[in-house]
Write a protein that binds this DNA or RNA. Structure first.
Lengths: 366, 366
DNA sequence: ATTTTTTTGATTTACGTACATCAAATTTTC
DNA sequence: GAAAATTTGATGTACGTAAATCAAAAAAAT
């Protein structure tokens, strides 16, 4: 049987009240006694029963999620996942609020972070913008002992507790490797379409992509990076211009959002030589394009994973408990048209497999 | 505030004892009363606090994992993950025992299943072999109201509650698609190496692979399937023979285990034209081969995921609770040498990221 | 209408932890 | 060595649920 607080008391030769004082770092314990108790804890291998503790405390975790606004399928999917988590709140003892800020706007993000700090939540998850002001705002939160998890886009150099997102350099490298191999002997240059170099994840993907292309596939020159602000309309114009002004584009790597515009532009040149297209994030649009052969591969990060992971980590940090790393890695999914998961509404992420003996649920995670 | 049993009692106008009788399906309640209570539960939206319930019951879940024995890196990794779960037992209220059976031996598996049934556990996880006897044994377990989850290899046609593993047809299709595209214009035939056609996962991978190759890349003929019994020595002999007797092998798809033998055989022909190799499961051997360029892509299923998922599902089934499908999908990881996660001992799957502000853990899941 | 059986209510204890209160013991201070 | 301050112990309540007991009420059987 698992040792309890009573066992600590017996082992340390002190009363339950003293054990409680040590465990919950309350005042009024001599350091000699404290040590005696701590050694007993170590010796008998006591681990706090978190379920019982939460029950006794009737603890709830107020969390704040700061997400970029705008017409971006991935971000809207992410928000839907947060809303799904809100629906689970009673069971998970969370109380989550969503704060929406304009995309690619560091100032607004700083304001939102400061406001979040004022609300004194048990944790904050934020889709970060890489800027010194934002780093400072995150560090202020940490100084106020509020755990911070970056979501999707990281903020190195800050004191954020954890990053719930993919390794974007590896994602870019993978894209480069697939691009090079899919192009095979074909000649031609490769275009890169990003959202903004302001966000870390886009910069990192570009770095990884460039590194592999330069080293392993030097035959394919890279065009200057296009920045479409993750905006479909803008992206469509950029790609239209590119494809009319430039000859010999063999591949396009779309490392940001706004793929609706990219797909629209690609559709206009139906019949011409195939361009190898690799994009990010599986949305209804990229899925359809993958099926139609307009896009060759989609690299995806599972927004549901990221949200659930962020919540688990924030809880753990709030409780001062170790995070189980193996469970929190967010992976890069590579989708070809041959391994697409069954279509499923991300928001309507309802429990499947509830009856007995159903087929395995398709299109999900862990 | 979340409604409690007291709220049910008040809402239904009955006593706490009656509510308890209904909730825990005890006898001695008239059907009229039972319905009154059930309606009240529905009406006020009561959800049982599982943590509190488990605390009150001091519930433990005795589970049995039936795994194939043998010198197979993936299966040994799987076993290591089960052992890691055993280490977490006190916290997770599980009590897991491992039963080892000879690989590809349906009779032994049936015996193990029957023995498991005699032990009356709260659930059984099994790496299935596709045979009518095994199906019958699994159905016996289910008839005895013991939840069964198939692990890695499924058993359709049986009444297993859930499959914790990947969509192997999709995996095979993906392998086919990658093989076809990586080969590009190159000519030559493609060999397929399996473990045994007795296990479902191998058959399904073959089906998927064949479908894509036949349809999308008819230029590459498939060689007859080689069965290596997942045994490195046997595999090495098979591949040695193949490569000396056959000319013009452009690709090899290894859909089972025993890749050590494959890699050894490949090493012997260093200097000759590159053969495109796609294999399954990331082990120290395949990882090294990927880095060396001997293997072009590795499709992987995360054993840690599968084990943790199986446990979550078994618990849910034991409690008669709905499974959260989105969290239980096991994904197919595609590894190129460009997106290999940092090396990590699968067994020593210790919590990372335990201090504050560490880099995100690499090489993991959910 | 009485007895028997079944159903319902009232109450208590337990799970492991948190938290509060008050008394007793110990240490520190003067 | 006495007073003051600090530390420790003893005890009780709470969290939401499970489970048991016994009495009371209601229903069914005679």
């Amino acid at each position: 049987m698992r040792p309890t607080v009573h066992d600590i008391a017996a082992a340390a030769g002190v009363s339950l009240a003293t054990v409680d004082r040590v465990l919950n770092q309350r005042a009024g314990v001599r350091s000699v006694t404290r040590e005696k108790v701590e050694q007993a804890i170590e010796r008998i291998g006591y681990v706090r029963d978190v379920a019982a503790a939460n029950l006794a405390k009737s603890r709830v975790y107020p969390f704040i999620f700061i997400l970029p606004a705008g017409d971006n399928s991935f971000m809207r999917g992410l928000e839907a996942q947060v809303r799904a988590a809100i629906a689970r709140s009673p069971v998970e003892r969370t109380s989550i609020s969503i704060v929406s800020v304009p995309a690619f706007n560091a100032e607004a993000l700083v304001a939102a972070l400061d406001e979040a700090q004022a609300a004194a939540p048990a944790g904050v998850a934020v889709v970060a913008i890489d800027s010194p002001d934002v780093i400072a705002a995150v560090n202020r939160l940490r100084a106020a002992r509020i755990p911070v998890v970056t979501l999707v886009s990281d903020l190195p150099g800050s004191q954020r507790d954890h990053f719930a997102g993919v390794d974007n350099v590896a994602a870019g490298r993978t894209a480069g490797s697939l691009m090079g191999r899919f192009l095979g002997g074909q000649s031609g240059s490769v275009a890169v379409l990003a959202g903004s170099m302001l966000v870390r994840d886009h910069r990192e993907r570009l770095d990884g992509f460039r590194a592999v292309m330069d080293q392993d596939f030097p035959g394919h020159a890279l065009q200057p990076v296009l920045e479409g602000q993750d905006d479909p309309a803008q992206v469509e114009r950029l790609i239209d211009d590119l494809l009319t002004s430039q000859e010999g584009i063999a591949g396009i790597y779309s490392l940001g959002a706004g793929n609706r515009g990219l797909i629209a532009a690609l559709k206009k040149r139906a019949g011409k030589a195939h361009i190898c297209v690799i994009a990010h994030e599986l949305t209804p649009h990229t899925r359809a394009a993958l099926n139609d052969g307009l896009i060759d591969a989609v690299l995806n990060q599972d927004a549901g994973h990221e949200v659930r992971s962020a919540i688990r980590v924030l809880k753990a940090k709030a409780d001062g408990v170790a995070v189980f790393g193996a469970q929190e890695r967010i992976r890069i999914d590579i989708f070809l048209k041959d391994n697409l998961p069954f279509e499923q509404d991300a928001a309507a992420d309802t429990p499947l497999d509830r009856g007995s003996n159903q087929e395995p649920a398709q299109g999900e995670e862990d």
